[in-house]
Design a binder for these strands. Structure first.
Lengths: 330, 330
DNA sequence: TTGTAGGCGTTATCAC
DNA sequence: GTGATAACGCCTACAA
C-alpha cells in the first residue's frame, strides 16, 4: 500500500506537504505540488479512506433507505442518485427498511457504525414518527422522497398524489364508466391515503356514490392486485373500471381480468400509477400516471450534496410534476 | 460520541481491556467482561468503524459488481446476498460496471479506496480478461456469478446455459414447430454464446436447417426484443416459435406479436429465460427457464464469507440447477 | 513555503 | 487478568 509517507520520501518533502498538495490546499509551491501529484499518480496512490475518515469525521457515504431495494419502483430512483453520486464522489449505501424504519436499528447502524454523512429516505411508514426528530437532533442532513412533511428544516421531494389519483380516476370517469373500483395500497403508507383521497374526490365530483366505487386494499405487489381484482369481479359485477394505486398491482389486475376471459379495456378499463418500464409492454399497454422517478433520485442527491457542502440550507420542499400516460388499457 | 475510553473510565479499567471484552477475546475475567458489556450498552456505544478499519485493515464490506443494478434480473440476487450479509454483519457496496469492468476504475476504487474485503462479480464481459488476474494478484477473494472459469483458485457460481437453452428450444420443437428463431443477447457476453450453442444444438438434433432457425441479436432489454421480433415477423414469415435469451426481450417480443394482431401461442409461441417475477403476469403467462437467482446471491455470499473467515479455500465451483417453467406462451 | 507534532478511536504487543 | 504503549494513515494547527 502506497501512503503519503512513501510519496513524501520520494519527493523529498514532509508528509504534510503531500497531504496539502493532494487536497488542493493553499501553501504549496506550484512546482512542488505538480511534482507530488505526478509521483502520487506514478506510484498508484489512493488515499486510505479509513484514516481520512477517522480524522475528518466525514465518511463520504450517503445512506439510502427504502422499503425493499428489489422492487422495480426504486430502480430509476437509484439510477438518478448514482448519476449524481458518481459526479460528486459520494458512495451510496443502501438498506432496506421493509415494514418500518423504526422497528429495526438500520438507521442507527447507518449513522453510527457506517457514519454516513447524509441520508435519503424513500417512502416510509406514517407510523414512523420519531426518526425525523432523531435525525434532526443528531444534525445529520437528510432528504425525504415521497413524503411532504410541513415541518421546518425538512427536505422533501414529492408529487401531488391527490391530484395524480384524481387525474387517473377522472380519466376513467370521462370515458363514461359509472362504477369503478380503486385497488389501494397499504393504508399505513402516506401515499396510499393521498391516492384514495384523489380517487374519492373525482368520484364525488362526478356524482357517483361511494357504494358504486369501492376501495380495496393490497400492498403494492402484483399478487395483491390479482387477488383484489378477483374480488372485484365476483362482488362488484357492474364494475367497468379500475384504478390501481401502482403499476405492479395493475399487472396482477390485468392478469385476473384475462383469466376471467374479459377484454381490456372493452369490458374493464384499467389505470395504474408509476409508469414502470414494463408498463409499455403489458397487454394492452397500461394507461398510468408517470412519476419522475429518475429525477426524484437525481434531485434528492443534488439537494443533499449541496447541503453537505454548505451551499444550501435545510428546508427544501420540491414538488415534482407527473403526467397521465394514455395507452390502451383505459 | 462514546468511545472505549469513556467506557474504560466508567468501568475503572484500561481501554485495551474494554476492547478485548467487547471483541470476545481471551484474557478478561468473566465478571469484568459482563460489567463492561453492560456499561457499553447503557452508554449506547458503537465501535467507530473507521478506527477499527484502520488498524485491522479489514473493512467489513463486500463489493458487488453488476452491469446495471436497475435491471430487474439482479433484484433477487441482491436479496439473496443481503440475507447472508445481514446475518454475518457484512455491508454490501454496489457498483455498476455497465459495459465493461475494465474500462472504468470502479474495481480499483472498490478495492483501494473503499477497501472491500471481498467481491462478488455478476456477469461480466468476456472481453474483460485481466481483472481476475489483478484480483488474484492482490489476493482479494472474489466470487463470479454467471461465469464458469476453469482456472485454479477461481470461485464460480453458474448454471448450464447450453443445457438451459437446449431445453427451452427443445420445448418449442417438441410442440411441432419447424421454423423457430432465437433472439440472442449481446455477443460479448459469455451466456449469450452459451445460449446460442444450446439453441443450435436442439435445432440440429431435430434435423432443422440453420436457415430456418435464424439467430438475431438484442441487448437483453425489452425494446430490443420488440425490435427483433418485428424483424422476424417481416423477414421470416413461416416462423412459428421464438426463444429469447431472457425474459425482458420476451416481453418486447410478445408486444410486437400482439401489435401484429397475432395470437400467442397459436400463431407464434414464445419461450424466455430467467423467470422474472413479472413473467407470471404477461399475457399469456410466459413459458421460461427459471434461474435460481435468489440462491445464486445467497450462495455467492456464503462462499465468500467462508473464504474471508478462513473456513474455506478458493476454488469453489458451484453449478446450480434450472427449471423449465411451462406456462401458456409455448 | 515547508516541517513538526499531536491526535482521531481502535487493536495488538508487550510487560506486569 | 490487566495496564501501558505503540501503531494504523491521514490531517491540521502551529512553528520554523
Amino acid at each position: 500500500m502506497v501512503t503519503i509517507k512513501d510519496i513524501a520520501r520520494r519527493a523529498g518533502v514532509n508528509p504534510s506537504v503531500v497531504s496539502r498538495a493532494l487536497n488542493n490546499k493553499y501553501g504549496v509551491r506550484k512546482s512542488t505540488k505538480e511534482r507530488i501529484i505526478a509521483i502520487a499518480e506514478e506510484m498508484g496512490y489512493y488515499p486510505n479512506t479509513a484514516a481520512r475518515r477517522l480524522v475528518t469525521r466525514k465518511s463520504g457515504m450517503i445512506g439510502v433507505m427504502m422499503a425493499d431495494i428489489s422492487e422495480p419502483f426504486y430502480a430509476q430512483i437509484i439510477k438518478g442518485m448514482e448519476y449524481v453520486a458518481s459526479k460528486t464522489g459520494y458512495t451510496l449505501l443502501f438498506s432496506n427498511s421493509y415494514d418500518s424504519l423504526e422497528q429495526t436499528d438500520v438507521l442507527q447502524k447507518m449513522i453510527v457504525a457506517e457514519s454516513v454523512d447524509g441520508l435519503v429516505i424513500v417512502g416510509s411508514n406514517t407510523q414512523d414518527t420519531n426518526f425525523t426528530r432523531t435525525l434532526l437532533k443528531q444534525e445529520i442532513p437528510f432528504v425525504l422522497i415521497e413524503r411532504n412533511l410541513p415541518q421546518e428544516k425538512m427536505n422533501c421531494i414529492w408529487i401531488d398524489n391527490v391530484e395524480g389519483a384524481y387525474l387517473a380516476t377522472r380519466h376513467l370517469l370521462e370515458k363514461g364508466h359509472k362504477k369503478i373500483a380503486h385497488i389501494a395500497g397499504n393504508p399505513q403508507n402516506q401515499v396510499t391515503i393521498e391516492r384514495i383521497t384523489g380517487f374519492k374526490k373525482a368520484v364525488s365530483e362526478f356524482g357517483l356514490s361511494e357504494a358504486d366505487c369501492p376501495v380495496l386494499y393490497g400492498n403494492y405487489v402484483s399478487q395483491d392486485g390479482y387477488r383484489e381484482m378477483k374480488k372485484i369481479l365476483s362482488r362488484y359485477a357492474g364494475c367497468t373500471g379500475v384504478f390501481t394505486a401502482n403499476d405492479s398491482m395493475a399487472y396482477g389486475a390485468l392478469h385476473a381480468i384475462h383469466e376471467a376471459a374479459l377484454v381490456v379495456p372493452k369490458d374493464i378499463a384499467v389505470v395504474g400509477f408509476d409508469d414502470l418500464e414494463f408498463s409499455a409492454f403489458t397487454n394492452p399497454p397500461l394507461t398510468t400516471i408517470r412519476q419522475p422517478r429518475y429525477e426524484m433520485g437525481k434531485k434528492s442527491l443534488e439537494i443533499l450534496t449541496k447541503i453537505l457542502q454548505g451551499r444550501e440550507k435545510n428546508g427544501i420542499n420540491l414538488c415534482l410534476s407527473f403526467d397521465l400516460i394514455i395507452r390502451n388499457s383505459a
